[in-house]
Amino acid sequence: MGENAQTRWWRQDGVGYVVIDNPPMNVLSDVNRRGMLEALGEFQRDGVRAVVLTGAGDRAFCGGADLKEEERLTPETVQQFLRRGQEVNRTIRELDAPVIAAINGWTMGGGLVLALWCDLRVGSTRAKLGAVGVKVGLMASNVQLARLVPEARARDALLTGRTLEAAEALAWGLLSAVVPPEELLREATAWARRIAARPAALVAEAKRALNRALEPEPGA
């Protein structure tokens, strides 16, 4: 259990919870990135069997990078900025416990990247997903989206930058379930407990195998 100015985390019944709390859009910052890393590190040490990641409030899961922070980047600081973001993504990917994103609202840019690096996503009816790189002259979420959904759909989302509503994201398989907003945390917890009830070592092994499943074979 812990918190910093923009992140809260706790454990309950073998499930770890992390909340990004940076209103109004829960944009990414050094503070909440550090909070997520600290929480996930703690969960890994303590053998937490499943994790739920969500955003505070009912407006956004995560609105992505803070554009004010991003505007100030220089050629010297840009790589560091990208590394810090990737560190959170990699930690989610390499965590033994599956991470479930509970998508409570807007999920755009770096926020979509974060959600796509999670192992599962469940959404409320307010979930809105946008691969907005083409709207702001950047590229993000290309690699993960192309692995999670067939290329025809990845092209649609990435080249138009359009917003996917919860129902469409469910049809695409990007969300595993969609429920009313007031039921989202309960739904995410149900998914987490279902996983937490399985043998932890087996779940971790299955996650590692799935992480490797799309890797090209050596020499291919």
Binding site: L138, M139, N142, V143, R162
Partner: peptide
């Protein structure tokens, strides 16, 4: 819709969809 988006970004996304599919994550 696509024509209103940043052209270099559209091109980079198209290229990445082809290029990155062959790469380890």
């Amino acid at each position: 819709t696509v024509a209103s988006r940043a052209p270099l970004s559209v091109q980079a996304n198209k290229a990445a969809l082809v290029h990155c599919a062959r790469l380890p994550l």
